[in-house]
Design a protein around this nucleic acid. Sequence first.
DNA 1: ATTGATGAAC
Length: 510
Amino acid sequence: MLGVSLACKITNISHNLLSLLDKCKSILELKQLHAVVISCGLSQDDPFISKILCFSALSNSGDINYSYRVFSQLSSPTIFSWNTIIRGYSNSKNPIQSLSIFLKMLRLGVAPDYLTYPFLVKASARLLNQETGVSVHAHIIKTGHESDRFIQNSLIHMYAACGNSMWAQKVFDSIQQKNVVSWNSMLDGYAKCGEMVMAQKAFESMSEKDVRSWSSLIDGYVKAGEYSEAMAIFEKMQSAGPKANEVTMVSVSCACAHMGALEKGRMIYKYIVDNGLPLTLVLQTSLVDMYAKCGAIEEALLIFRRVSKSQTDVLIWNAVIGGLATHGLVEESLKLFKEMQIVGICPDEVTYLCLLAACAHGGLVKEAWFFFESLSKCGMTPTSEHYACMVDVLARAEIVGRKLIELEPNHDGRYIGLSNMYAVDKRWDDARSMREAMERRGVKKSPGFSFVEISGVLHRFIAHDKTHPDSEETYFMLNFVVYQMKLSCHEDNQERSLNDTSMEDDLLLF
DNA sequence: ATTGATGAAC
C-alpha cells in the first residue's frame, strides 16, 4: 500500500518536473530545475536531460556552454543528445564547435543520422568554409543520405553562401521533388552570388512563391545596387504577392537609404506601422540608417530613441553615431558614443571609423588621435580605413595630403581631397595644380551619379548627361544660376577664378 | 527534433 502511494508520488514529481521544464523561461530557472533533477537522483533519466539540453542549447535565452557541460557528463549520449548539441553550436557564435563534436562522434564510432547532417552543413555555411562543407557532403554521400531533401536544401544554401553557385545548382538539379525551400535556396543562392539574371529566372519559374522568395529577389537587387528594380518588385509584391514582412522591409528601406528617397522611405515606415509588423532591432537599425542617409536625421533619432537601451547592440549605435557624423553633428555624435559606453555596449572597428569621420568633420585633431589610440588599446587592429580616416583628419590640418598622393598616385579621391583642402584655404594655385597633376598622370575622376527624389519620382543625373526628359530646361536654369553666381562674385570683387571652374565641375554633374 | 530571406563604415 505504502509502496504504491510512494510510486504514485514519484510519478507525480516526475510529471510536474517535466512540465515545469517545458515552461522554463530563463537559464536561471533551468539551472534551478536541473538542481532539483540532480537532487532527486533523476539526472541519468533521459527525458529530463534531453529537455535540459534542448533548452540550454536551442532557446534564445539558453546558454550553449552550459549545454555542453551537461552533455559532456553523459556517459553514452543518445543520438538525440548529439544532434541537439551539434544543432545548438551550429546556431551559436562558434559553429566550428559543431564540426569538432562531429569529429568526436566519428572517433567514438557513433553514426550520425539524417538529422545530424543539416546542422553540420549549416555550420559550414555559417563559417563560409566550403572545404568543411565538402567534407560533410562527402560523409553524406558515403552514408547514403544524398537524396534527403532537407540535406540537399541545406547543401544548396551552403555552396551558395560560399560563393559557389555552380555546385549549388548541381545539388539543386539533383533533387527529384523540389519544394519551395529548394527553389528559395537556389534563388537566394543566385542573388547572393550576384547572378540576378539567374535569380530572376528562378523566381519566374517557381510555381509557389512565398514571402521569402519575394524578399530574396528584392534583397538581391538591393545588394546589386539596382534599387529602382528592387522597389518595382516590392510594388508588384503588394499588388500580386504575399504580404511583406519585417525582413522584406529591411531590404526596401535599405534601397531607399541608397537612393536618398525620403518620401518612399517614409511610406515604408508607414507600411510597417499600418501592417503592425514587428519592429525588430535589425529593422530599427535599417530605418535609422535610412532616415540618416536621406538627410532626415531628426526622424532617425526618433526611431533610435524609441528603442529601449537594454535591447540595443553595437550596430544600431554605429548607425546613429555614423549618421550624426555625416550630418556634421559632431558633438551629438560624440555624446552618443559616451552614452553607448554607459549602456555597456562595446564599440567595434566601425564605431571608431564613425568617430574618426566625426572628428574629420569637426576638425578635432586631438580627439581623433585619442580615438585612434584607444582603438589599439581596446585590442583592435586599425584597418586601412582607419588610417584613411586619420589621414583625412590630418589632411584637413594639411599634414599628410601630399604624402598620400605619393602612396596612391592613381586614386582620384586623393588628388580631389588635397585640391579641395587647398581651396578651403584659398590657395587656388595649389589647388589647381593638384587637379592638373591628376589629369597629367591620367588619373580619372570616377563619375558619380546624383539622385533627386521629387514627389516620389526618382531622377538620376550624371555629368554631361542629357538623357533626362527635362534636360534642356534643367541646363537652361543651371546656366542662369551660374551666371547669377558669377555676377555676384564679380560684384564682390573677389578673386574667384578657380572657384569658377570647380563650381562648374560640381554643377555640371547634372 | 531537421533545410531557406534581414541591419552599421569604407
